[in-house]
């Protein structure tokens, strides 16, 4: 890792901006993500913020099994995110496609799609259906440590 990359990674850790991609989740993970940003858990105090476009993001938060319609948008979103970036496979569906594994319209897990785009990608897994807010905050800390 050269000094430029180290500097970029150091920069991300201060205030990670998150772009959320729903690749066919049941909404529950999405609600819990928003819940973490709301007054009781308030992850925004750590500088974590949801942004409107992957071009502004440092972390790509992917919830849901990857369905046929969302595979290409997910690839596009990953490509648009400035590197270095972290990918978080969120919830049981994000980690392993969960209960929808056998669905005829489900194309595979988040890590398979991302690894096809970039074998070196940094991927963290947050299991749970849905993950509890405490688990999400702990995952945020671990993701930043991995960078």
């Amino acid at each position: 890792m050269n000094w430029k990359e180290r500097l970029a990674r150091w920069g991300i850790k201060r205030s990670p901006w998150v772009y959320h991609v729903n690749t066919g989740a049941c909404n529950n993970c999405d609600i819990e993500i928003l819940d973490v940003l709301c007054p009781r858990f308030d992850a925004e105090r750590f500088g974590i913020k949801l942004v409107g476009t992957p071009r502004h993001a440092d972390v790509l938060l992917v919830s849901g099994p990857v369905t046929r319609h969302t595979e290409q948008p997910l690839r596009d979103a990953y490509e648009a995110t400035p590197k270095p970036c972290a990918v978080v496979a969120f919830g049981a569906c994000g980690c392993s496609s969960g209960i929808f594994k056998d669905g005829l319209n489900v194309n595979g897990t988040v890590d398979r799609v991302i690894r096809e785009e970039d074998p070196e990608a940094i991927i963290t897994y947050v299991p749970g259906c849905p993950p509890r807010p405490e688990a999400i905050i702990s995952a945020a800390v671990k993701t930043l440590e991995a960078l």
Partner: peptide, 14 residues
């Protein structure tokens, strides 16, 4: 729509 289609009815039959 159709982005979230996970073929739940088909899975239910198995």
């Amino acid at each position: 729509t159709g982005y979230n289609h996970r073929s739940i009815e088909t899975i239910a039959e198995t």
